[in-house]
Design a protein around this nucleic acid. Sequence first.
DNA 1: CATGGTCTTCACAATTTAGTGAACATAGTG
DNA 2: CACTATGTTCACTAAATTGTGAAGACCATG
Lengths: 158, 158
Amino acid sequence: MTAVPDEGLASFIERSAAMLSDVGWPRMPARVFIALLVSDSGKLTAAELAETLQVSPAAISGAVRYLSDTQIAVRDREPGTRRDHYQASGPMWQQTMLSRQQLMKRWADALAEGIEVLGEDTPAGTRMAETLAFFRFMEAEMPSLLAKWRERRPEKSD
Amino acid sequence: MTAVPDEGLASFIERSAAMLSDVGWPRMPARVFIALLVSDSGKLTAAELAETLQVSPAAISGAVRYLSDTQIAVRDREPGTRRDHYQASGPMWQQTMLSRQQLMKRWADALAEGIEVLGEDTPAGTRMAETLAFFRFMEAEMPSLLAKWRERRPEKSD
DNA sequence: CATGGTCTTCACAATTTAGTGAACATAGTG
DNA sequence: CACTATGTTCACTAAATTGTGAAGACCATG
């Protein structure tokens, strides 16, 4: 239960969180998420998170709320105690795919709207239609790709 | 050559740029990039960009430098003039895939390092190894997926 | 070789984002 | 029914980001 990670781990957490930050995550949720990932059990209490990351309880509170709201992590409380435990709501690759999917959806919607605004017969409209078609293609291909992955790694079912 | 886009287009540009901003793009480069995408020719001068987006030349200068540095857009100058033209360096779907690939690479490296820091036999190390394997799997599948896409849309060769 | 158009740099002001500490709320315990 | 452990909210400061205007650099041309 070493709450304070060794130097190497702490730096790994920080750098990984920075990568998430680079793709738009708020800083503290990113740190908390990585801290959860690198913990042995995959579960930590607010106090453990605060200790691991050397930040205030207030910061943890805000971060876990973000992670809950966005369904990246789940909060669960063992009955008979008031201590919440947090853990990532799925394996990392699954979360990656999930967020990618949501992003694709957003872009597809935006593109559809752009095509409408510009007109499908305009050069820009045509280019966007092409991109939209590509996104839809990728979306359609994902299920079978994921199936292939699961088939390859039958030992892990989550 | 209406440099100032109509209300609908302007708002479309802003909202699309905001989406890029949400995934980590600096604001102005995002706006410039979208402005290029929605332009008829796909090419605009610095002056046209400034006019379209209603921002200062200085802002455009910084943004196009960012886009050049990151190879998202290319600068080209017609001989005999001092006016630079900028355009996205490839179709949007290609850029999407490219940036995704780079991101995957970064994560793969980080994960490999994390596994080393944590030890492959630890629970967290094992989870990360699993994720790394997934990323490598996706990376390996991409070429054939792209091939399939190109096959489907032979009319567009870029 | 001076002019003017084009692009860049830089210091600065405005805005946004992060994180803290302190006060507050809430629920289980003796 | 206090008491304590846990979590949340809020006002505030520090820091990062964004975009501007003004000054400067650079080059094609008359």
